[in-house]
Nucleic acid binder design. Sequence first.
DNA 1: TATTGTTATACTCTATAACTATA
DNA 2: TATAGTTATAGAGTATAACAATA
Lengths: 151, 151
Amino acid sequence: MGNELLVYDRLLEIALLLQEDMSRSLASSGLTVARTHLLWELHQRGPSTQRVFAQHLKVSPRNVTGLVDALESGGFVARRPHPTDRRATLVTLTDLGTQTMAAMEQARRLAAHQLVAGFGADQLEQFRRSLDTVAGRLHQLIPSADDNTGE
Amino acid sequence: MGNELLVYDRLLEIALLLQEDMSRSLASSGLTVARTHLLWELHQRGPSTQRVFAQHLKVSPRNVTGLVDALESGGFVARRPHPTDRRATLVTLTDLGTQTMAAMEQARRLAAHQLVAGFGADQLEQFRRSLDTVAGRLHQLIPSADDNTGE
DNA sequence: TATTGTTATACTCTATAACTATA
DNA sequence: TATAGTTATAGAGTATAACAATA
């Protein structure tokens, strides 16, 4: 069935385009995709230790150090002492970080709207269901894709 | 409309999963995503100069040098002199490279089939159309996303 | 003079390993 | 002894700039 390949290739193409679009829109603010992931996670979870980010972003603690360093230099986050554990540091959003996340949330809604503008309710619903199915299949294909470490 | 955000987030999730799945399946063969892109392009176009790859992959010539170095070390490609232009080198697939691409094409078909297995002809067709629309919108969103430099 | 590919340099993301301070 | 975060080191992908050989 040729449509299967067409669908697969379109998904790959969309994946590339989404990545590219994200990189582009971030570049101006001195952010990168990796740093923004951490920032977004922080926005969602509230102040957390670096260890928490390492676990949820599934990267090494060392990597988190670098990302937080960069975000701190950019003024997006601040390191604060953990109230009870003097080994740990709490990463918190600065005002700039908070504003940046608010703008990003706006951009996300706008992009979400633009991508499917003009879709009928039925088409949108069926599209969503198809995507859900594909995402589920992908989770099956990938052995240790347990992203549910606290969500 | 909440469905718009659900669709958008699912697309982002699928993009991440596709990338992860690809990295995983390549890791064993000593390939990476970037190198495989070049290999795939070579497989599609036939022997080409490095400059051609730089243009079509939209990366710097220097980057291509590094990728071809790695692929050459891995035995996937060979550098051959250009028949008429002594400045240029022709990158060609070795037997290993050819076999690898054949296997990858197989894997692509299998994955394409698995992701949408059980979809009815109508559902698949509508899914494809929705994806086409989204891909088109993304191309509009991204200023210089002209990937059609020869396709 | 323009082009092809290279060396030189640098930045980002990523990893593992060793180490410090704390628990 | 185990954990949180760091320094040290390394590799991959990416970029620009300077340079050699050739067109």
